[in-house]
Design a protein around this nucleic acid. Structure first.
Lengths: 152, 152
DNA sequence: TACTATTTGTTTAACATTAAACAAACATGG
DNA sequence: CCATGTTTGTTTAATGTTAAACAAATAGTA
């Protein structure tokens, strides 16, 4: 559903692209999130994000994890609390800095995420299956170009 | 930060594009949301979304609004409750269907949203200013193509 | 060494978000 | 007309999300 706004060509095009981009991202995430919740009772996208980060980065402190998945400190605390409850991760005080804790995957967590990840990848490939290889690359390039705006 | 995943070319490209797309959308939304909260004390993106929809569609029931901004019924109730508290919207029972309520902008809400909206547009134009006209259109086309996947 | 600035995770408050359950109202079909 | 199915908004429970405030720990400087 395009915007009802009446403005310059540039304005309308920008608004419409923003809407399409937001819609597409939300749709994909919704589908991924639904599939995830079905595959592992009520696991959420943010919890998955932490597990994924730990799988690839290895044990990390909360600050690093927050930076990796772009969430705030308070949020990380909650998400990790809930993952701890599920016994997917454990926290240990960092011997080098007692303010910090090192978060790592438990055996259970490792088993889950390494088992699930290929299905996750499969799902994502499926989400972009309507695009050609060239289009996929171009979409990535354009998103990166837009997202880089504030890095200058 | 690209994925650490080792897989086929298609898989890696899909994952990377997904990450870029998500990152870009979140960045833009974060900046818009910050600007919005500064412009009107603690107004949230979802509240703005309802106001925007009402500005363009006129008085609507909650179901329509939920469909327009792609949020669930329970969430709409909360967001509108909070907008009502700010006296930006009002609810009236629909005379044709007593289960439903018609939500409309108050004078205050109308003043705010019609005054703020041009700045919102300006911000979005700015967010996409790194793209050429052609790129902007192409980004929109690709996002639409991806997002349409589940409409078949 | 002492003081100040910075950092790390936690807590708090307010709001968002979903799925599921529910009640009232409406629509449909026999 | 009545019974059944559907719809609309609300409530509930669980989780997410942010900014701000805070305390403990660390780093830097005089």
């Amino acid at each position: 559903m395009p915007t009802h706004f009446k403005g310059s060509k540039k304005e309308i095009e920008s608004l419409n692209t923003f809407i399409k981009m937001t819609r597409a991202t939300e749709s994909i995430n919704h589908r991924l999130s639904t599939y995830l919740a079905e595959s592992c009772e009520r696991l959420t996208v943010s919890q998955f994000g932490i597990l994924e980060a730990l799988l690839h980065l290895g044990p990390s402190n909360q600050k690093e994890l927050g930076r990796k998945i772009l969430k705030t400190g308070g949020n990380i605390t909650l998400v990790i609390d809930n993952l701890e409850k599920r016994n997917y991760v454990k926290r240990e005080t960092d011997p080098n800095d007692r303010r910090a804790s090192i978060v790592s995957l438990t055996t259970e967590g490792k088993d889950f995420i390494s088992g699930y990840f290929p299905a996750h990848v499969e799902k994502i490939v499926e989400e972009f299956s309507s695009l050609t290889s060239e289009e996929l690359k171009e979409l990535g390039r354009l998103c990166k170009k837009v997202g880089m705006k504030e890095n200058n």
